[in-house]
Design a protein around this nucleic acid. Sequence first.
RNA 1: GGCCCAUUCGUCUAGUGGUUAGGACACAAGGUUUUCAUCCUUGAAACAGGAGUUCGAUUCUCCUAUGGGCUACCA
Length: 505
Amino acid sequence: MSDVRVRFAPSPTGPLHIGGLRTALYNYLFARKNRGAFVLRIEDTDRNRFVPGSEDHISEALEWCGIQPDESPMKGGDFKPYRQSERMHLYADYAERLVVAGYAYYAFDTQEALTARRRAVESKAVPFTYGVKNRMELQNSLSLGATEVARRKETDPYVIRFKMPERNTVVTRDLIRGKSEIDCALLDDKILYKSDGMPTYHLAHVVDDHLMQISHVIRGAEWLPSLSLHQLLYEAFGWKAPEFAHLPLIVKPVGQGKLSKRDGDRYGFPVYPLEWQDPQTGKRTAGYRESGYFPESLVNILALLGWNPGTTQERFSLAELETAFSLERVNKSSATFDPGKAVWFNHQYLQEKSDAVLARDLAAILKTKNLEKPLGFVERVVSLTRMRADFVRDMFEGGIYFFAAPDSYEKKAAQRIFKPEALPILQSLEREFARMSEFSREALAQQIENWIRSRGLGLGRVKSLLRLSLVGALQGPGLFEIAALIGRAECLTRLQRAISFVVRH
RNA sequence: GGCCCAUUCGUCUAGUGGUUAGGACACAAGGUUUUCAUCCUUGAAACAGGAGUUCGAUUCUCCUAUGGGCUACCA
């Protein structure tokens, strides 16, 4: 194992969505490619936004996709614990360390006071930042005397803020975007430690990434603006900073903004890998799994959303991605998820599966509809309908006539085909079917087609008539395949139904 | 408002200081299938705009525009 260690560090504030999943995937792939370790760490430092069930949703989604963490809250590891709420004892100490070394300070300003100040200043279209320019005018251990600070620490709630250095610039490096130089004067003294005794993300993730020996931080581009703060934090601690790679955002297909976990299924395609049930409202939102996608399809399309191999290859198994992936080929610009392409990928993966596997899934659907059939029969249906299916359920919906007689006829086709002249043909056809000694596809094809020709009837015309009678529409696989599979008795029943339909109309 | 990032067909993207700017999805047409779909062939479809550098810019630089992100005691 190399010294490459990466982590996916979601906060349990709701379901995982495909953007988060892609971040996890890229971390996982980078770890596998470099024979490193992939760590799952839960960043639950915000008590207010905690949503029960989130962590399980995240773990199960990763598992469904085949993205197995090497270390996680469930699995453990050398750097446990992997939930920040279980690492609370660490952060206060590190925050204090920065104060002692002069890189941070205590601040006593109330949120109300700051909000008021912010409003006053911003009404003049000037941004408010708690920082170099005004920190001496505010209530903190820099502006107040030592005895006053000691007294207020006893009685008042306080936070610990990072003291932005007064030097000019900070240089950051990103593996995807290259170098960037930011003016420190523009940065504010970010809160590292909250008055409720919890660290903020900025402190906690730097401490944990250092302690967990993370070598590469691969995360969403929304973190780019705080990269300089994180860089400065590593410098203040005297730690070697990891490499950073900020992934392009996945944006909403309509409207504007990045895709968020609150987007649910409002775009007509799932946003979550797995179904999510809101613990408050009880509302369920289907995920990719419930919508009939194979995990391979989701992984494949997500892999290509922001990364490409530099070749024309588009189909990638997870194993192939593990060797092909590289950060160098990750894009800079944000991407829109294309649900149509996800469907196409699923079609491709469905075509790769064996009849037996698909039959098992189709049988499960049939069971829920009380239309159970012998597995051999289901497997035949699969072999006949699979090429027109994107999802397993398409074989049920598009092949419903295999399981039940049509309860209606496609209107336009019926008007054209079920004319009074069709009646004698239908009746003769019924007699021919009843008379056949062998009811196989081959026998049907030979005898019925011969019979049609000997009567001087159009092959297409009679076959359409037969198809509409058996299927209810002018679609589906080979006519005699269908007839043979549903069997003589069922064919006769459907023919009789068609006859009475023609008589009535 | 401030700061940061990005910009190639509708979408995902390849690519180069000189290319007929390539592929995939979606779309359209034709063929195959006496149905539908699959499949095959073909087609339409892009370098955001303006300056500059250069013999030559889609490619390099700057400006503008557009899109996005951040601007919390959220992550």
